[in-house]
Write a protein that binds this DNA or RNA. Structure first.
Lengths: 118, 118
DNA sequence: ATAACACGCAACCCACAGGTTGCACTTGAC
DNA sequence: GTCAAGTGCAACCTGTGGGTTGCGTGTTAT
């Protein structure tokens, strides 16, 4: 186990957002998704940063539940995990809908008020 | 006008993600969405930070297209803008689906290979 | 057995995001 | 006309996120 000990979606969304905020991390995810499998070392020499940097990024991604690594012999294979991403996508979508709803309501009220005073 | 001069969704998504990564900024958005309307000064004394801090956050949110401000007399009214958020939500959703697809393919191949060698 | 490869840990560096304070400039109220 | 409210701009401070290097530890190959 690595992340998520219950506690509702809010916590997770937070981690996912901060994780995705970094471009390097997004590139790592892209490569991982494309290859389906990769070690920190492998990923490192596909990017202009050291292995340690990659390791740190993977740690962040893992804490967000976006990635998970399993030891295979002397190396650690990392894989992408869609669940957390999907959760966050839904959260965001709901939020957008909520904003829309509120804006619509406000607009309606404004028009009503305008009609009132004429 | 404030943000977005064409250039495809990628750019925008980047800004939105970094904007949403900060908890203070998310709170600001919540308050804005709830009130439908607010000035930097108003927002500031609802939070434990200075007006200037709020102004900077609003600038970031505006650059991401999540918010827009209009001058009304001596104050500037800020409003929430769902469009950018919605775009990002879709992007994320698509990405999640993409990951799922790839993982499914890989699993299928693995099973095929296993069946092969037995 | 030993060399090479991959990982884990720790110390360290530095740019910059988030925050503050102070002051000048408009705009509205009285 | 004058005072207060609200904004805009700039300088400044500080923690930390992203990065590096160095070294010790396991694991596989020869």
């Amino acid at each position: 186990m690595s992340a998520e000990g219950g506690r509702g979606p809010a916590e997770g969304v937070d981690n996912v957002l901060t994780a995705l905020a970094d471009p390097t991390r997004r590139r790592l995810l892209d490569v991982l998704a494309a290859q389906g499998d990769a070690t920190a070392t492998t990923l490192a020499d596909g990017l202009p940063i050291s292995r340690q940097a990659v390791v740190k990024h993977l740690a962040v991604l893992d804490a967000a539940g976006l990635v998970s690594g399993a030891r295979v012999g002397r190396e650690v294979r990392y894989v992408v995990r869609p669940a957390a991403l999907d959760t966050t996508a839904r959260w965001m979508s709901t939020l957008a809908a909520d904003w829309d709803r509120r804006l619509a309501t406000i607009k309606r009220l404004a028009e009503a008020a305008e009609r009132e005073e004429s």
